[in-house]
């Protein structure tokens, strides 16, 4: 019952906020249930969401799209599987898990299909304590490598980024972060400013952070040893 009801809320929400066609058929028991829970109301025979219904629906959409991001960006699942799993996912994620996932993903604002993800509390607070996988390009340091996952920003910005060839799936390596960001993609280097760099979300490759640490230490160790001699 719960899953079915949530799906209905979702559809109502989408029809209001994103202009998708709503499904006509609601069976009586479902309607009873939703009315009882105070999630929908009827005005002039037209069904609409109550405030509570709206809140719940928004949450479900958010969970669905976060799940899509997770499955797509981190787990690299295919299109058909994503839809199927995301639809299950959205009904079972708890609040804490939701925030953890969102933070892990760097608080994404659009789903892989380009639809907006309604922000949650964690996005507003910009939480960081969970170990993250996805970073804004502007948060990376020289030597880091990763894969572009998505870009956040208005249509103009994303069109620009697209036409520059900064596309999801492109591998990049950070060369410098000061005074501008310089990245290497394929056999060419590009310079970009901080605004652009913070609109680009990158899945960072694991081992590189460690390697960089090592190099740094290596350097100092050598220097220090010289000093002792």
């Amino acid at each position: 019952m719960k899953e079915e009801a949530e799906n209905l809320l979702k559809e109502l929400w989408l029809s209001v906020h994103e202009g998708l066609k709503e499904r006509g058929d609601i069976n009586d028991s479902l309607r009873e249930y939703l009315l009882d829970e105070g999630l929908i109301k009827f005005v002039n025979d037209k069904i609409s969401l109550t405030e509570e219904g709206e809140r719940r629906a928004r949450k479900i959409i958010r969970l669905h799209r976060l799940a899509e991001r997770l499955l797509n960006d981190v787990l690299g699942m295919g299109e058909s599987k994503i839809e199927e799993s995301a639809c299950k996912f959205e009904h079972i994620i708890s609040d804490e898990v939701e925030e953890a996932i969102c933070t892990l993903l760097g608080h994404p604002t659009v789903c892989p299909h380009g639809f907006p993800i309604p922000p949650g509390n964690c996005c507003i607070k910009g939480e960081r304590e969970v170990e993250r996988l996805i970073f804004r390009l502007s948060e990376l340091s020289p030597g880091d490598e990763g894969v572009i996952k998505y870009v956040v920003g208005g249509k103009d910005l994303s069109n620009k980024v697209v036409s520059f060839g900064l596309l999801p799936g492109e591998k990049l390596k950070i060369i410098r972060v000061f005074p501008t960001f310089i990245i290497q993609m394929g056999n060419t280097q590009f310079a970009l400013d901080r605004d652009l760099a913070s609109a680009i979300f990158v899945l960072k490759h694991e081992n590189n952070g460690e390697k960089k640490e090592e190099e740094k230490h290596g350097f100092f160790r050598k220097r220090r040893r010289k000093g002792w001699e």
Binding site: E18, V110, H113, G114, Y150, S158, N159, V162, L167, G169
Partner: peptide, 17 residues
Amino acid sequence: KTLKSYEIFRQIQESAN
């Protein structure tokens, strides 16, 4: 409706790849 350009160009890139 949405920010689809990104996804479109991603798929074009995929076709190219």
